[in-house]
Design a protein around this nucleic acid. Structure first.
Lengths: 182, 182
DNA sequence: GTCTATAGCCGGATAGAC
DNA sequence: GTCTATCCGGCTATAGAC
């Protein structure tokens, strides 16, 4: 009864992968559906068969990152040391989803998307609050902003391309804890 | 003999100011010349009178930041403690040119611009080298990347809007020195 | 210095053939 | 599931009137 042909969702995944690659090179506004289609060697209408709108593609590209954020928040909430678990979780997220995080965390089109989908925006705010801890002073607030903003860039910095995932992860976590204790 | 009417360059500055504001909200790709014209209450062709191409506008928006970078590099080179002077200079740059730095440092269109204008790209690389110092280890390289990427975000983080320039500057410099000594 | 008008191209999105 | 053809609107850029 399995359907060997046209396995559901495979086309979607190919579109999402191509979109992510192009988004990270040219930004969301700078990427047209035509480019995505060309990249896959298909027609523009074939892309529309998978996603009715461009926003739908953005949503699908972002989805796995937000899923992981939900897990991080759940883990941190279940832990005694919220701040440390959240910090490590964020570092893991950056490693596991380099391209999604780096390509989209500073994209103006994604910012607009988040303004229209407050459940997603709330996840980011919640993670921020966990890093801040209760009653943060000015220095801590700046340190958290610096760390959060920096994390996104580190993921795709070409100058760090020779550093393996494990080394990067452990140094990031260490630097994060260091910064947030400053 | 002064010419009270049509003071040279004033029109250009108004275009640049409007462009910067829109670039920071919508990104470069997401900003059309029509939007810039509308924002100034003039026609699209009036913008073309000041700048022959959109790239010309990008160049003019970036110019002051690169000028300041040149000064920072010159100052650091003349100093004994290159790394500290460069770090402080970068923090000052972020404060003085928040919008330019934040809006454009992660913009894919600007990245493409830099690939075509290697003199400008070289300034950024040179500053990076000054922060790294001679023979940096892995941890230092990651710290520099984290700091550089984070600086850009801090400048426009709405959550830090209540912090004055002076407080922000001194904390940033302090956090920078702290991070680079980690 | 700003305007209208227009060229020519490309954007997102849809309809319908195969 | 992919294609061609098409709609309509917006884009950069130019020409020329005022």
């Amino acid at each position: 009864m399995g359907k060997p042909k046209a396995p559901r969702g495979q086309g979607r995944e190919r579109v999402v992968a191509a979109a992510l690659e192009l988004f990270s090179e040219r930004g969301v506004s700078g990427t047209s559906l035509q480019m995505i289609a060309d990249h896959l060697g298909i027609g523009k209408a074939a892309v529309y068969y998978q996603f009715k709108t461009k926003e739908g593609i953005i949503e699908a590209v972002l989805a796995p990152a937000f899923e992981q954020m939900r897990r991080i928040i759940a883990d941190a909430e279940a832990s005694e040391s919220q701040q440390e678990v959240a910090t490590a979780g964020l570092c893991n997220l950056v490693i596991a989803q380099r391209e999604v995080v780096a390509a989209l965390s500073h994209d103006p089109e994604v910012r607009r998307f988040l303004e229209m989908h407050s459940e997603a925006a709330e996840l980011i705010l919640q993670l921020g609050r966990m890093l801040l801890g209760p009653e943060p002073d000015t220095r801590r607030r700046i340190a958290v902003s610096l760390f959060g903003g920096g994390l996104a860039s580190v993921g795709i910095d070409p100058q760090l391309a020779d550093i393996g995932d494990e080394a990067l992860r452990s140094e990031l976590i260490s630097l994060g804890q260091f910064l947030l204790k400053a």
